[in-house]
């Protein structure tokens, strides 16, 4: 089971920073610049990689309930590390995404999507294995377990970080760009209000 999580901060400030860079720097229209700041190719968002992933199965639910503080700090090894964001991903038996929760003071979840091509492959494998007339329940259970074990999905979250003062970025913007920014922020606020 290899689930990866990528978080994209959709704050408009990244797009504005990219615009300023493009205006100041040499023209890079001909060069596909993959920047070194985890920004997407168009610079419209900021990719983050929370790679500290912990799996919680039903058989260790009691552990989580009884000692939630310990569970929350389970991924923290170093003393003095400060946990700021918690992402909880809920998967069903087949490994499909059921729900995502983000607990953070700095980010709000806008939307999420999953890319699980391997999952489809796994399902195909499950179907083919079922087609082999395996009557033994134990064997079936084992195959389901092994399929679940092979769940391999990419989860992508769109989040929004705290709105900040954009006035330094707005000076040289055209009216058209300002309208686009307004529309984008409006949509983001709408998504946030819908999720409340």
């Amino acid at each position: 089971m290899n689930v990866t999580v990528t978080v994209y901060d959709k704050n408009v400030k990244y797009r504005l920073e990219e615009n300023i860079k493009n205006n100041k720097g040499p023209s890079n229209d001909d060069q596909p610049a993959y920047n070194n700041e985890s920004k997407s190719t168009d610079g419209s968002d900021y990719a983050m990689f929370p790679t500290n992933i912990k799996y919680i199965f039903e058989d260790n639910n009691d552990e989580l309930v009884d000692s939630s503080d310990a569970a929350l700090t389970a991924g923290i090894d170093k003393v003095g590390d400060e946990l700021e964001n918690v992402i909880i991903v809920q998967l069903d038996e087949s490994g499909s995404l059921e729900d995502i929760t983000l607990i953070s003071d700095q980010y709000e979840l806008l939307s999420h999507r999953t890319n699980s091509l391997s999952l489809e492959e796994n399902q195909m494998r499950t179907l083919s294995s079922h087609g082999d007339d395996k009557s033994n329940d134990e064997e079936e259970e084992l195959s389901v377990d092994s399929d679940r074990f092979r769940v391999d999905s990419d989860i992508e979250l769109d989040v929004i970080s705290q709105f900040c003062d954009l006035s330094p970025f707005l000076r040289d913007l055209s009216l058209n760009d300002l309208i686009k920014l307004y529309v984008t922020q409006n949509e983001q606020l709408q998504m946030l209000s819908n999720s409340v």
Partner: peptide, 30 residues
């Protein structure tokens, strides 16, 4: 968000497969 200040919990229905271990913590950035 990084591996230090953010933790991802993946809740899976069913029991933990035999021999399954959580992946090691690592750092990935731009």
């Amino acid at each position: 968000m990084n591996s230090t200040n953010t933790v991802v919990y993946i809740k899976v229905k069913g029991r933990r497969p035999q021999g399954f271990l959580d992946p090691p913590k690592f750092e990935w950035n731009g």
